[in-house]
Simulated scan of single mutants.
Amino acid sequence: MPSAREHDHGRVRRSYDTVAGEYRTRIAGELAHKPLDRALLSALVEETADGAPVADLGCGPGHVTGWLAERGVRAVGIDLSPQMVALARADHPCAEFRVGDLRRLPAADGEFGAAVALYSVIHLAADELRPAFAEMRRALRPAAPLLVAFHLGAEVRHMAQWWGHEVDVDFHFLAVGDVRAALEDTGFTVRAALERTHYPHEAESRRAYVLARRAAP
């Protein structure tokens, strides 16, 4: 019998499988309206060793992975939802996509020269942050940059309806200090953290970005 934690991640997977098509329709073009995200992604690419692959962890329909690939990056998108990955592969043949869990990444040790995790850690319970960041560290090369984005707060929002679909998924809002501590405890050096309000087309929440670097062995 699956554990309670595996059951929770099964709920997340099924929920994103359910909304995958609608999610792509609504979200796939969002980077065009997010200048700060584009700037941070560009900064991350500049700090990535030439030719090193960049992981998009929790890639959804692959719009960020595709954006990176269009700029000459060897981009690899990883997502828990097989339906999301299927859409991403169809829409962005220039990139690679894998089905996988943040806690058990389908990646070799030190495979990636950088990684982004944009609003994917929000589906992890508080005690899963450190194991997930430790797994990211394992898959990153020494000194590789990592960009993490999340909703700010201390609440857990449950959704049973999402764009007219029945789902069962929790969104964990996080504090910058907690994310920073989890990163530092798992072998990252935090280099920058910033906050912003939501854009007009986004759900209402404050957002945070933390830019870190994998420490040397």
Rank of each mutant, 00 (worst) to 15 (best):
P200H: 09
A160K: 14
D168P: 10
H165L: 06
G187Y: 11
A126K: 12
T189S: 14
A154M: 02
W162D: 03
E128G: 02
E135Q: 08
D178N: 01
L124E: 02
R130N: 01
E202P: 01
F173N: 00
D178P: 00
A175Q: 14
H201T: 06
R157S: 08
L211N: 01
A208E: 07
H165F: 13
F173Y: 15
A134I: 03
A115R: 02
P200A: 04
A117I: 07
E184K: 07
V116S: 03
G164T: 12
A117P: 03
H158C: 06
D178S: 09
D170I: 05
R138K: 11
T186G: 05
F133Y: 14
D185E: 15
V167G: 05
A117D: 03
V210A: 13
R196N: 08
A212S: 10
H198G: 01
A134M: 02
H165T: 04
A132T: 13
Y199K: 12
F188I: 13
A115V: 00
I122L: 08
P200E: 07
L124P: 03
F112Q: 10
V156E: 09
F173P: 06
V179C: 05
H165C: 13
W162F: 13
Q161N: 13
A114F: 10
V121R: 06
D185K: 08
A125V: 07
Y119F: 14
L152A: 01
V116K: 03
A181T: 10
V190R: 05
R141D: 09
T197Y: 00
V121H: 07
E155V: 11
A114P: 05
H201S: 09
A132V: 05
H172S: 04
R130I: 10
L147N: 09
L147E: 12
S120Y: 00
V116I: 12
E166T: 15
V169P: 06
W162G: 02
R130L: 13
T186M: 02
A160D: 12
A117L: 10
A181R: 13
A125W: 09
F112Y: 14
D178T: 11
E155P: 06
D170G: 01
A143P: 04
S205Y: 00
H158S: 11
L146K: 12
P131K: 04
V190G: 08
L147F: 12
